[in-house]
């Protein structure tokens, strides 16, 4: 197996996320087999592979949201900026503060647009002095501006978020992560519920966020992986097959399985 050569300078060598021999079981079904992977900080890394290859499972292991299912067992380690996510139960809230997640279907909370954006901030600003209404307004505006949604919704911040279009809802789902100041954003097929126009807009937004945030993006759309990511991980049947810069993977894949998948022989 060929280790990817780090494309970032040694100063930023600490990976945003590091999987070490990570295996995962749903009950008796093994979904991941000893994954070793380093997600470089400040870049967009896409996870590709056929349905059921474990790419979503891998993504959902980073913030341990997998474990909501209750019959999940893991081996190995996942570290986010050097902190072992699976080490101690009480650190989970801190981990999730650093790791934001965007889901397949926009899952806005049944609250107003404003309350959606400020929700995470309110959870985590406990005890750190009261945030005034004006502070909150500034946070909401900043987050909505960053996801290019401010002009669309500034006059209806107190309306229900569920009334927005799917594209706007998905942008809102990204916006509500930002006030918590995460370092890593996990995106699980964030465009799969959107129409082509919405997909384009959200992809553009993801591209805008590059650099400031590390983004790990699951997609089954290879064109999207090619357009929207800098680094690419190919998975198959629960194993990580290849991890290379995106332009290399789509031109000169190193493994036969990758080449077959990219050429559409299966998947």
């Amino acid at each position: 197996m060929v280790e990817p050569t780090p494309a970032v300078p040694a100063a930023a060598a600490e990976p945003a996320a590091r999987f070490t021999g990570f295996s995962l079981w749903y009950g008796t079904f093994q979904a991941l087999y000893g994954v070793d992977l380093q997600v470089e900080a400040g870049r967009i890394t896409s996870l590709i592979g056929p349905s059921g290859c474990g790419k979503s499972t891998l993504l959902r292991s980073v913030n341990r949201i997998n474990e909501r299912l209750g019959y999940v067992r893991t081996e190995g380690a996942v570290a986010v900026h050097g902190v072992d996510v699976y080490a101690a139960q009480n650190a989970l809230v801190q981990v999730r503060k650093q790791v934001g997640m965007v889901f397949q279907r926009p899952n806005v909370l049944p609250l107003s647009i404003r309350d959606n954006v400020i929700f995470g901030h309110r959870l985590h600003s406990r005890g750190a002095g009261r945030t005034t209404r004006a502070d909150e307004d500034a946070i909401v505006e900043g987050a909505l501006r960053q996801v290019l949604l401010w002009d669309d919704v500034k006059d209806r911040l107190n309306r229900r978020a569920a009334g927005l279009s799917l594209e706007q809802q998905q942008k809102l789902c990204i916006a509500r992560l930002l006030p918590v100041k995460p370092r890593l954003l996990l995106m699980d097929e964030p465009c799969s519920a959107l129409d082509p126009k919405g997909t384009e807009a959200v992809e553009e937004l993801i591209w805008e966020l590059r650099g400031e945030y590390t983004i790990l993006l699951v997609t089954h759309n290879m064109a999207q992986a090619r357009r929207a990511s800098e680094s690419c991980v190919f998975m198959l049947l629960g194993k990580m097959i290849e991890h290379t810069p995106t332009d290399e993977m789509f031109v000169t894949p190193q493994r036969q399985e990758t080449a077959d998948y990219i050429e559409g022989r299966y998947g």
Binding site: N63, I65, R68, V93, Q94, R96, K97, G100, M101, F103, R105, N107, V108, L109, P110, F119, G120, L123, H124, C173, R176, L177, V180
Partner: peptide, 16 residues
């Protein structure tokens, strides 16, 4: 359940 998932992913405790 998507509401719970969304809130938990934002770092909310079960009671929150």
């Amino acid at each position: 359940d998507t509401y719970r998932e969304a809130a938990e992913a934002l770092g909310a405790t079960r009671w929150q």
